[in-house]
């Protein structure tokens, strides 16, 4: 199939950037979206032009590196799919495709489709962990965690940190991303001692980094390649409220 691509090109963080049009010819339906872009890039290089810069790494849908808004939707139109797992059989001959970077104040564009997502790491550094030391911990079966709790934690932990939830949100809110980590650790006995401190610190970091608030659009869940549920935003709010309640120990 032949396709017309309109791709966001931006030389650097200070450049204004604009959409450029390219033709993708003889695209096989078995190719992944990124393989289609690889081919376009090989053509650009051969004609002496700068290839399109885009983030990608594992190409198996788990590292969270790929980050493109395709025809207005982060990761494209297929549900629960990262760009690298999106295959060209989803498109038809003659289609026009618009490809843009994640758009959010906290994700400044670096070049073409590459953005800076280090703000997500900052949120995690604020408290996305259990403060255990290496070594000197209990036997793994000493603390029993019933399957439904383990499953709930795992549902939240599946987040790949790609940032699609933020790119999809009209407020550029990172509450699904943050909620998933807060919920995972709050559900588990290991995470409870620090639950209050954690939710406060992560929420503060989220606001400081320039992410917006949740106003229940649920675009995040629809865009999430792992289908992380918005129930974790509710859990985040609940944990946050709990952290505000007075307690004699502060825990």
């Amino acid at each position: 199939m032949d396709l017309t691509l309109h791709v966001w090109r931006q030389k650097g963080p200070q450049d204004k950037g604009k959409l450029e049009t390219y033709q993708a010819k003889d695209v096989s339906p078995d190719m992944s979206f990124l393989e289609m872009l690889d081919e376009v890039n090989d053509g650009l290089i051969k004609s002496g032009k700068d290839p399109i810069a885009f983030d990608h790494d594992c190409r198996e849908g788990i590292c969270g590196m790929c980050s493109q808004v395709i025809n207005g939707r982060p990761h494209g139109k297929q549900e629960k799919t990262t760009v690298c797992q999106l295959h060209m059989r989803q498109y038809n001959d003659g289609d026009e495709i618009f490809i843009e970077p994640w758009r959010a104040k906290a994700f400044p564009v670096q070049k073409d489709l590459i953005v800076d997502r280090s703000a997500l790491d900052v949120i995690m550094q604020a408290g996305g962990y259990v403060s255990c030391h290496t070594g000197g911990v209990d036997d793994a079966n000493a603390m029993l965690i019933p399957k439904p709790i383990a499953d709930y934690a795992m549902d939240a932990a599946e987040c790949i940190g790609c940032g699609a939830c933020i790119a999809a949100c009209p407020n550029s809110s990172a509450m699904l991303f943050t909620g998933a980590k807060v919920a995972q650790l709050a559900a588990l006995p290991q995470g409870k001692p620090e639950a209050k401190k954690r939710v406060k610190a992560m929420t503060e970091a989220l606001l400081e980094e320039g992410f917006g608030n949740c106003t229940n659009h649920y675009e995040c869940e629809a865009a999430c390649p792992k289908g992380i549920s918005v129930k974790f935003i509710a859990k985040l709010n609940r944990e946050y409220l709990k952290s505000l309640l007075p307690s004699s120990t502060g825990v």
């Binding site: 259990v130 255990c132 911990v137 793994a140």
Partner: peptide, 10 residues
């Protein structure tokens, strides 16, 4: 043991 202590949901 270490991973469980960290909250890895095995």
């Amino acid at each position: 043991d270490q991973c469980v202590a960290q909250g890895v949901p095995f």
